[in-house]
Design a protein around this nucleic acid. Structure first.
Lengths: 143, 143
DNA sequence: AAAGTAGAAGAGTTTAAACTCTTTTATTAC
DNA sequence: GTAATAAAAGAGTTTAAACTCTTCTACTTT
């Protein structure tokens, strides 16, 4: 559905979101541990997301990654778009370049419906929405 | 959503299905041309599908791949399952191994809904269902 | 039976995603 | 201002998916 890179990105961002609620910045090491991912790899991903304005960071001691209130309102769709592009939301289900309403692949209509639902679901899911359930230990970011 | 291999597989099978309606067997060369895919690669894929009982084949002159009536009733879900496995239908949206109702990732519930829809859509889409629209040139398998 | 066609099988190459390592630069605490 | 800390940046490696090539085997037509 989404790339592995994107999966790591979402999990990392959900963790950063959780910590940002209490104004805490988190380092790469802490994030990697929390989501069980290769440390240098998640560093790369977060740098990329930082460049694209989806996460804030501070260097030096007490530094780390964090989100402001605007950042907490970003959606999963924003992350997916930043990492994987909009292929998931708009691409053809059978990989055809020119697939469209005018020149549809056999399953075009069916896929349009499903893709719309995926997009809506991901646009509706905001990074800040999961803080409480993560805090309560009802939801997990690793294993 | 599905692997490129799987996209080729579905397109090839839809083409074979179309030709099988008129009891015609089609060779790899013809299939590759019809769906615009690398010929040796689609050969591999079809061999694999043949081994798994999803397509029939005959060697020698006038040979090729074809489907019987049972084969025409196979669904896209069957193809996806044979090539990509059931990851798309049952895997975790964030890549967690142990994600389940008991130990859910943050987006578990949302993904369960969407996956169910994808599965239903693909189970409902049978290989033989598209013969007429392909014949009429309303739907396309390449470009 | 011979010739030609077509799939089967296995090994091999290419490419892109996934992941790692090293060096640099910025910031803060002391 | 110095030392420690943490992210930024770039280059490099590994792995798996995507794709290719060659040889073999089976079948059908003449």
């Amino acid at each position: 559905m989404v790339s592995k890179t994107c999966e790591y990105a979402i999990r990392a961002m959900l963790f950063v979101a959780q910590k940002s609620k209490s104004k805490t910045k988190v380092g790469v090491k802490q994030i990697a541990k929390a989501i069980d991912s290769p440390e240098p790899f998640i560093a790369k991903i977060l740098q990329d997301l930082g460049k694209k304005g989806l996460v804030l960071s501070a260097k030096g001691p007490t530094g780390g990654f964090y989100l402001d209130n605007a950042g907490l309102k970003k959606s999963l769709a924003d992350i997916v778009n930043a990492i994987d592009g909009d292929k998931l939301f708009t691409g053809c289900g059978l990989g055809l370049k020119s697939c469209s309403a005018k020149m549809p692949c056999p399953v075009h209509d069916e896929f349009v419906v499903v893709r719309k639902q995926i997009k809506a679901m991901m646009q509706n899911a905001k990074l800040g929405d999961y803080n409480t359930s993560l805090e309560l230990g009802e939801k997990y970011l690793k294993r």
